[in-house]
Amino acid sequence: MKSRFLLIPAYALVISAPVQATVYLSVEQAQALMFPGATFTPDFVTLTPDQMKAIEKSSDVNVLSPDLKVWRASTGGWFIADQVVGKHEFIPFAVAIDAQGAVKAVEILEYRETYGDQVRNASWRAQFTGKTKDAPLKLGGDIQNISGATLSSRHITDGVKRLLATYALVLANQKS
């Protein structure tokens, strides 16, 4: 006979309804904030297996998905919306890269984790400004760690590093 004791986890799971996501910026809002006055042309990319391998080799960061959501800005530069692994869920974020291939800005679009939302602090995100593919982008090195938010800050740092490698190896070679 099946014990009803086994239903206890089920009761518990039923009551654990998903928490509302905290959306700080939509893609459109982030675009307007990061490239004021610009218009955007979608240039979505599907990375080939060889490109993914090259990006991973260059950045030493795993590529989570071959699908890349990229827009060209009319004022020059690129806007990329992507995500990294968080403690419980993915963390959607956006990187603006200028026409010279340097980070213009980083924005956190949504943050749904219990702790670690200090990665939204402007002063922490400002550390990425001006970084290029050749920067170390190492947490505890050229990017300061946030104590108590280590997982999120490391994954966002890795995410920016991966997207800079993606820009250098793939986007910079795209015909306009």
């Binding site: 986890p9 518990a12 799971l13 654990s16 998903p18 928490v19 419980h88 749904r112 984790e113 219990t114």
Partner: peptide
């Protein structure tokens, strides 16, 4: 072992 981790609670069995 199975685990659910949310923003305000977690459950592990």
């Amino acid at each position: 072992v199975i685990h659910y981790g949310g923003k305000k609670l977690f459950i592990t069995a």
